[in-house]
Design a binder for these strands. Structure first.
Lengths: 188, 188
DNA sequence: CGCGTTTTGGAACGATCATTCAACTAAGGA
DNA sequence: TCCTTAGTTGAATGATCGTTCCAAAACGCG
């Protein structure tokens, strides 16, 4: 064999995620990427193809990690409603950092099919366990049974986007927390 | 005197608003602007300064129009709660078109002071009449009195952002309408 | 008509962009 | 030591970017 990789691909990708989160696709240059990823220009192209492919990889990785984090938070509590509340609180706590999912939707809408497909995958992966816990909470009487679980998921996800936008716009933590509270209130 | 303006400044600015709504600041080129605004390259720079100044003007105009539309919809009904519902329905109906406010916050966060200042102005202008009608609806018993009117406004605005993101991500009208419904439900 | 002004568009500027080529260095295994 | 692969780096590509200069054309008014 020959010389081994000196950088960790996953680690470099994580760094790329950070840059794209903060500056979006158009607002990010190759120079910004190589600097933060701590790899050479050529290594970037060799390893990730081009800027767009790297962006797709970054969104994919971000979505996967974020979805996993949501799900494990959701299931971290015995009580279903408390699990749901924990997810809301997590979103509030992390809202200071821009969300790559929200950003990419804002930037490209549904113009890029590959991007939309990734969002759809992540949304679906999140929906299943969420619906399960919502049913659970409804049976326990902690959530109203007047609403379809699917509609509740949609509403929660929408609220998350809203909270993230509010945070990006400079809202303070108290306000974000209050927003989460009112959202939960809607589902009682 | 001499040769008069051949284009309407306000009209040209409206066209710029459309382009920026769809493609954001970074994603918009001067060529795209002059084409849609139907003015010469030089006229753009003579009239609006440069691309960034034009963007600020566009955001300003958009915010002013959007805020006015919100307020007049809010006051278009005798009943306060119906006025609030009308605003929600308006947001749902127009959500297919990207919101320049949401987009600019997504793209720049709070990095550009002039931009943040404009958002703050629009938010404040919207808040006053909203709080008034929320109080009204609370007194009429159509809205819960458990929540501070200010918190209710924040929640509604946040929901609007969320709905707009959902729409930009491809959600269908039925889903958007349902989101609005649940949001109103939270305030009862 | 011609003066003053506006609008337009071609040409060009320098900057930056993403991307590639090529030469060079570095490291492990044979 | 040599080969192979990985990595870095400088130079260069061609494109596009925002922006300015300039000259020609268009128009209203005296």
């Amino acid at each position: 064999m020959a010389r081994p990789r000196e950088f960790d691909t996953a680690q470099a990708l994580d760094a790329a995620v950070q840059v794209f989160r903060e500056h979006g696709f158009e607002g990010t240059s190759a120079a910004m990427l190589t600097k933060r990823m701590r790899i050479g220009r050529q290594s970037l192209y060799d390893t990730f193809g081009d800027k767009w492919k790297l962006y797709l990889s970054a969104v994919s990785r971000y979505s996967a990690l974020e979805t996993s984090a949501h799900i494990s938070t959701l299931n971290s509590k015995e009580n279903a409603f408390e699990g749901i509340r924990a997810v809301v609180e997590r979103v509030v706590a992390e809202a200071r950092m821009p969300c790559l999912g929200v950003n990419s939707i804002c930037e490209f809408g549904v113009r890029q099919a590959e991007l939309s497909a990734q969002h759809a995958v992540a949304a679906e992966r999140l929906r299943v366990p969420f619906v399960k816990r919502i049913r659970e909470a409804q049976l326990a009487g902690d959530l109203t049974s007047e609403l379809e679980p699917d509609a509740v998921v949609d509403f929660l996800v929408t609220t998350f986007s809203g909270i993230r936008i509010a945070a990006r716009g400079g809202a303070d933590d108290g306000k974000l927390r209050a927003l989460g509270e009112i959202a939960l209130r809607a589902l009682r």
